[in-house]
C-alpha cells in the first residue's frame, strides 16, 4: 500500500458496550511518527476504543478515519493453538507476504520456542509471538491493547524499544495500557475524561 502519509483519527467518537455508554466526544488525530498512550481502569473502554479504531466494532456515534494499514495486538493472538509456534507464525507470514521473518523472531527471543505447540506457551510467550507477527506485517499503524501485560522487565524494555523504533521510523502507535511507557514525545489521555457524567442522558 503506497499511501502518502499514514494517519489515524477519531472524530467525536462514542462507543458503548451493551446498554452502557463508555465514552463520548472523543477526538484525536495521530500523524506519522506519533505515539499515543490511552490510560484507563479495567472496563473503562480501552479495548472497545481499540476495536472501534480497528473497524472491528461499530461506534455508537462519530467516525474513525485512517490512511495506511492497521495492525492489531490484543489478548487474542490469532495463532493456532494446536500448531507448533513456527508453523502458526508461518501462516501469517505467508498471508502477509513476509519473506524475512527471522529478525522479529530472534529479537523477541522466540527462536527456541518454534517447535513448541502454541497452547503450551505462557501468556508472555504468546504475547511475544503476537508481537513478532505484528512486526512481520510491516504496517504503519499499530493498535496495541495491553502490549506489556504478562511480560517480564527485560521484554518490556524490548517492546518499548520496538515501539520507539516504529514511531521513529514514521509509524503510528496507539497503546492502551495501564502500565507506564517510556516513549519520547508520546501524548496520552485517560479514557475516563471522556466518560459521560452520571446525570448525562445516554442519548
Amino acid at each position: 500500500m503506497q499511501a502518502p502519509s499514514p494517519f489515524l483519527a477519531a472524530e467525536n467518537l462514542a462507543c458503548r458496550r451493551g446498554q452502557r455508554l463508555l465514552f463520548r466526544r472523543l477526538s484525536f488525530r495521530l500523524e506519522a511518527g506519533a505515539a499515543c498512550h490511552v490510560t484507563g481502569a479495567n472496563g473503562a473502554g480501552k479495548t472497545t476504543l481499540i476495536r472501534a479504531l480497528a473497524g472491528l466494532a461499530t461506534p455508537y456515534a462519530g467516525q474513525v478515519r485512517s490512511a495506511g494499514s492497521l495492525g492489531l495486538l490484543d489478548e487474542r493472538t490469532g495463532l493456532d493453538p494446536d500448531l507448533p509456534l513456527g508453523r502458526a507464525l508461518a501462516f501469517w507470514e505467508q498471508v502477509d507476504g513476509c519473506t524475512s521473518p527471522h529478525g522479529a523472531i530472534t529479537i523477541l527471543g522466540l527462536a527456541p520456542l518454534l517447535e513448541v505447540p502454541v497452547r503450551f506457551l505462557s501468556t508472555g510467550q504468546k504475547k511475544r509471538a503476537a508481537l513478532a507477527a505484528l512486526l512481520n506485517r510491516g504496517v504503519p499503524i499499530w493498535l496495541l491493547d495491553e502490549p506489556l501485560s504478562g511480560l517480564d522487565a527485560e521484554t518490556i524494555a524490548k517492546v518499548t524499544a520496538l515501539i520507539r523504533l516504529h514511531v521513529g521510523g514514521g509509524g503510528i502507535a496507539l497503546i492502551a495500557s495501564h502500565q507506564a511507557l517510556d516513549v519520547p514525545g508520546m501524548t496520552s489521555f485517560a479514557i475516563e475524561d471522556f466518560a459521560p457524567a452520571p446525570e448525562e442522558d445516554d442519548a
Binding site: A54, G55, L56, S69, L70, G71, L72, D74, R76, T77, G78, L79, D80, P81, W92, V95, D96
Partner: peptide
C-alpha cells in the same frame, strides 16, 4: 472467533 483469527484476517482486508 475466540482465537481472534477472523479479526486478524479482517484487519488484512
Amino acid at each position: 472467533i475466540a482465537l481472534g483469527f477472523f479479526d486478524q484476517l479482517k484487519l488484512r482486508g
